[in-house]
Write a protein that binds this DNA or RNA. Structure first.
Length: 110
DNA sequence: ACCATGACGTTTC
DNA sequence: CGAAACGCCATGG
């Protein structure tokens, strides 16, 4: 047990609230949790997310530019992109198309 | 305690 | 536009 477990738990809760076909960023989640400077921890939480019992849609979390920087943490070489495109999110060269339109900001929409 | 390593973000070149 | 330098902070050796 550590004090950051609560932070991780909240990260997972928010991640599960991301609507189908929408995406958000590591920084947006960190900022919403009052830890604007801990975006890297959100990424770390995503890495740990697969150990969670409850599923976490980690593929809906990208960096602030809408680029799939964490794709290498998924199986294969394009699984993350496949998962997104299954939801209607278009990706070209690891860049989410129309990113600003489908971006889901927890601070404004939650 | 020190150093290295990131699924980040911002600034600068 | 890509690369690098910082700042940030939990984790691991």
């Amino acid at each position: 047990m550590s004090t950051s477990d609560n932070f991780f738990h909240k990260v997972y809760e928010i991640a599960r609230l991301i609507p189908f076909g929408r995406v958000t960023s590591y920084g947006a989640i960190a900022s919403y949790l009052g830890a604007a400077k801990s975006a890297r921890m959100v990424g770390w939480a995503m890495t740990k997310s697969r150990t969670q019992t409850e599923e976490v849609p980690a593929h809906r979390v990208v960096n602030r530019n809408g680029i799939l920087t964490g794709k290498h943490h998924f199986e294969g070489s394009d699984l993350m992109q496949q998962l997104l495109e299954n939801e209607g999110v278009k990706v070209v060269d690891d860049q989410i198309q129309n990113f600003e339109k489908i971006f889901w900001n927890p601070a404004e929409e939650l």
